[in-house]
Design a protein around this nucleic acid. Structure first.
Lengths: 195, 195
DNA sequence: ACATAAACATACTGATTAGTATGTCGCAAA
DNA sequence: TTTGCGACATACTAATCAGTATGTTTATGT
C-alpha cells in the first residue's frame, strides 16, 4: 500500500467514523482533517469534492467494515435459518464498529442522503443489492437442501430480513439494547414460521 | 388563535416541512425565515434556540399532522387486523404530507437526532409510546373480541408493527413506491399469521 | 543525479451559520 | 393620554463551511 493510498484510506476510514456518528451533512471536511494528519490539499487531491468522498466511503470503507461479517455468518453452518439469524445477531451485537445509539452507517446514510443525492442513492442501492443477493442465495441454498419449501420467494424473504434490520436499527436508537434482544426473539420466530 | 400563536405555528409548520425534506441539522433558521413572513426577532421571541423549536415541532406540529390519521384508522372497522393494516397502508399511501422519497418525519428524526440530543430523544420516545399504546389497545380489543388468542403479547406485536414501518420507510427511499406495495402484501400475511 | 509529476501543505475566499443587541410598534390597563 | 409590555424587526457578530489558489515536498523513472 503506497503512502498515497494510506492517506486516501485514512480519509475514508475517519470520514466513515465521523459521518456514522454525526451524519454526512453535519460532518465537515475540516472535522476529518482535524482528527487526521491529512491536510486540505491532500483531501482535494484525492477527491474532487465532499460528495465524491461520501460515495467512495460507501463503496469502500463501509463495505470493508461490514461485508466480511456478512459473508462469514452466511456460510457458517448448514442451516440457512441459523446463518441468517446469526448474521443479524452478529451485526446487532458483535460488530466492533457499530453501537446501539448510532445504529448502522448504511441505514443512516440511506435515511439522510438517498433523497438528496443521486450519486449517494446509486452507491447505496448497489450496496443494498449486494447484501440482498447474498441473503437470497443463502435462502435458495436452504431450499435446495430441503430446509424450506420451494414455494417461498427468496427475494421477498431477503427484503423482509433487510427491512426488519433497518427497522430495528432505528428503534434501537430510542429503546436501547434491550430491544435488540426482544427483537431477536421475534426474528427467530419469524424464521421458524417459514416452512 | 391570537396573532402571536399564528406566528408560532407558522414557524413550526414550515420548520417541519423543511426539516422533513432536508434534515434537522441541515435546515437553518434562516431557511425557515426566508420562506415565511417571520423575522429572526420573532423566532427568538418564541423559542430560546433551534433545539427548543425542534422539540416543539415534534410534540406539536408532527403530532397534529400524523395523529388524526392513526386514531381514525384504528377505530375504522371492527377487525383489528383490518384497522392496523389500514393504518399502515394509509400512512404509506394516503397521507398528504409524506412522500416515498422523504419517508416519515418521525422516523427521520429518530435516525438523525436520537443519538445527538437528549431533548429530542425524550420528545420522540413520548411520541413513539403514544403510537405504541394506541396499537396495543387495538390489539387487546381484538383479543377481547375473540379475533386473536390471548396468549399473544400485544406490546410485542405493537413494537413489531412499528419496527416494520420504520424499516419500510427507510427501504422505500431506495426502492420506491413499488416496494411499499409488496411490503403491504407481506404485512397482511404477517397479520394473518397471528391467530 | 536530475527532471518531472504525483502528493501534498498553507493561506485564503465568499457564503452561511446560530445567536445577540438593540431598537420599534401596537395595544391594554390605569 | 400615558405607560408598559408583548410581539416583533433590523443589523450585527464570531464561527464555520466547501472549495480554491498557489505554493512546496517527495517519489520515481531514466
Amino acid at each position: 500500500m503506497s503512502k498515497a493510498e494510506v492517506t486516501r484510506s485514512d480519509i475514508l476510514r475517519r470520514g466513515l467514523e465521523l459521518i456514522y456518528k454525526q451524519g454526512y451533512q453535519s460532518t465537515s471536511i475540516d472535522d476529518i482533517l482535524a482528527t487526521t494528519k491529512v491536510t486540505k490539499g491532500a483531501f482535494y487531491y484525492h477527491f474532487r469534492n465532499k460528495e465524491e468522498m461520501g460515495v467512495a466511503l460507501i463503496s469502500e470503507a463501509m463495505q470493508d467494515e461490514i461485508w466480511p461479517h456478512i459473508e462469514k455468518s452466511l456460510s457458517a453452518g448448514s442451516d440457512f435459518r441459523d446463518n441468517i439469524y446469526e448474521m443479524i445477531n452478529g451485526l446487532l451485537f458483535e460488530h466492533p464498529f457499530m453501537t446501539v445509539e448510532h445504529g448502522c452507517p448504511a441505514v443512516n446514510l440511506i435515511q439522510e442522503m438517498a433523497p438528496l443525492s443521486e450519486a449517494f442513492r446509486t452507491a447505496l442501492i448497489k450496496s443494498l443489492n449486494k447484501w440482498k443477493r447474498a441473503i437470497e442465495a443463502e435462502i435458495i441454498r436452504g431450499q435446495q437442501a430441503g430446509q424450506l419449501g420451494m414455494a417461498h420467494d427468496a427475494k421477498q424473504i431477503a427484503l423482509n430480513v433487510i427491512t426488519l434490520y433497518h427497522g430495528v436499527r432505528n428503534m434501537g436508537k430510542l429503546l436501547g439494547k434491550t430491544y435488540y434482544t426482544s427483537f431477536l426473539n421475534e426474528f427467530r420466530r419469524y424464521l421458524d414460521t417459514l416452512e
